[in-house]
Design a binder for these strands. Structure first.
Lengths: 64, 64
DNA sequence: GCTATTTGTCAAGTATATTTTACTTTTTGA
DNA sequence: TCAAAAAGTAAAATATACTTGACAAATAGC
């Protein structure tokens, strides 16, 4: 269950994992793990990522 | 920063904190703390709450 | 008023999100 | 082709989400 929407949104802005990590104040490994689908981030971090990428929670993190 | 949208959505379905907690598999205190705004839940728990209440992530957890 | 249900809150413990360090592999551009 | 940047991954440590148990205050129904 990789998060390809996150990876795609980041690529669309030409940002590296490191740049996104810096923008939201976490480590690069955390961003990598979220994209990989390893574990579930907190809603606070999800919100920060959404704002950094100009997306909504539903666009990046909703699951059916 | 209380989450009144969550409290309201739960009330609209006439569910107690305990019932919502059982529905999503966490303790009553966890639901109470989220409504109170004490700490940030994981996205996984947010998704479970949304589905139990028939709401989206943006409807219950988006912040400007 | 009385009782039961619900909610608010706290302290101590457990589970897990996140960090740090470090190394390898893949991709990119000159 | 080569070097640099980016991405993937892992182990150990730390921060914090979440549990359990317990009790008081508030709310609702009889």
């Amino acid at each position: 269950m990789k998060n390809l929407r996150l990876k795609s949104a980041r690529a669309a802005l030409d940002m590296s994992q490191q740049q996104l990590a810096d923008a939201v104040g976490v480590s690069r490994q955390t961003i990598n793990a979220i994209e990989k689908g390893d574990y579930n981030p907190t809603i606070k971090l999800c919100l920060a990522i959404c704002k950094a990428l100009g997306k909504t929670l539903d666009e990046l993190f909703w699951e059916e």
